[in-house]
Amino acid sequence: MDHRGLDEDGYFERDGSLGRIQPEFAGLVAAARGRLAEAYGNRLHSAYLYGSVPRGTARPGRSDLDLLIALHREPSDEDRDTAEVLGRGLDQDFPQIDGVGILLYGKERLLSEPERHDLGWFLACLCTPLLGADLAEHLPRYRPDSLLARETNGDLAALLPRWRARFQAASEPAEFRRMSRFFSRHLVRTAFTLVMPEWNGWTSDLAESAEVFGRYYPRRAAQLREAAAVALDPVEDPAVVRRYLDDLGPWLAAEYEARHGTKTPRPAV
Rank of each mutant, 00 (worst) to 15 (best):
R20N: 05
N200L: 06
S146A: 11
A39E: 12
V100I: 00
L111D: 09
P95K: 05
E198T: 15
D246N: 13
F213D: 04
I69A: 15
W163V: 04
Y11R: 12
F12R: 03
L36H: 12
A254L: 09
S180L: 09
L126G: 01
D237T: 02
L160M: 10
A227W: 14
P144G: 00
P250R: 14
M179S: 01
D246R: 12
G101D: 09
R185C: 06
F213C: 10
Y256R: 15
V85P: 01
S184P: 00
V100C: 02
H45Y: 00
R116K: 15
L28P: 12
L126W: 00
A157E: 13
L86A: 02
W251N: 10
Q96W: 07
Y216A: 12
E74R: 10
H72F: 07
S180A: 15
A231W: 00
E172R: 15
R225Y: 06
V29E: 07
R116Q: 14
Y256D: 14
A133E: 09
R20Q: 09
A133Y: 07
H117F: 12
G56W: 13
G120A: 03
P161H: 11
D79C: 05
I21T: 03
E115N: 14
R225G: 11
G5A: 05
A228R: 04
D134R: 10
E226C: 00
L119E: 02
D91W: 14
M1P: 08
R141P: 00
D205L: 11
G249W: 02
R266N: 00
R143D: 01
S180N: 07
Y40I: 04
S146D: 05
D237G: 05
R14N: 07
A221G: 03
R88F: 13
R181P: 04
E236K: 02
L130M: 09
G51K: 10
N200C: 03
V100G: 00
V195K: 06
L159N: 11
S209Y: 00
L111V: 08
S52L: 03
D79W: 01
R43V: 10
A229Q: 11
C125H: 04
A70K: 06
T193V: 02
L65H: 03
V29M: 06
E137N: 01
G5C: 06
A170M: 06
T193M: 07
R109E: 09
R181H: 04
L224E: 08
V241A: 07
R225D: 03
L6I: 13
A83R: 12
L104I: 12
L131H: 05
G120N: 08
F167G: 05
T264I: 01
L252M: 06
L67D: 06
K107Y: 08
L49S: 05
Q92V: 09
H3L: 11
V29H: 02
R73E: 12
L135D: 03
W251I: 08
H186W: 02
G19F: 03
R73N: 06
G87C: 13
R242E: 15
A169S: 13
C127G: 13
R266Q: 08
L86Q: 07
R181K: 11
R164A: 02
L139T: 11
H138A: 13
H3G: 01
F25M: 13
F182M: 15
E255S: 14
A31V: 03
L71A: 08
F122Y: 15
P267C: 03
Y105C: 04
E108Y: 09
V235R: 10
E151T: 07
L139K: 04
G56L: 09
A174W: 07
L206Y: 11
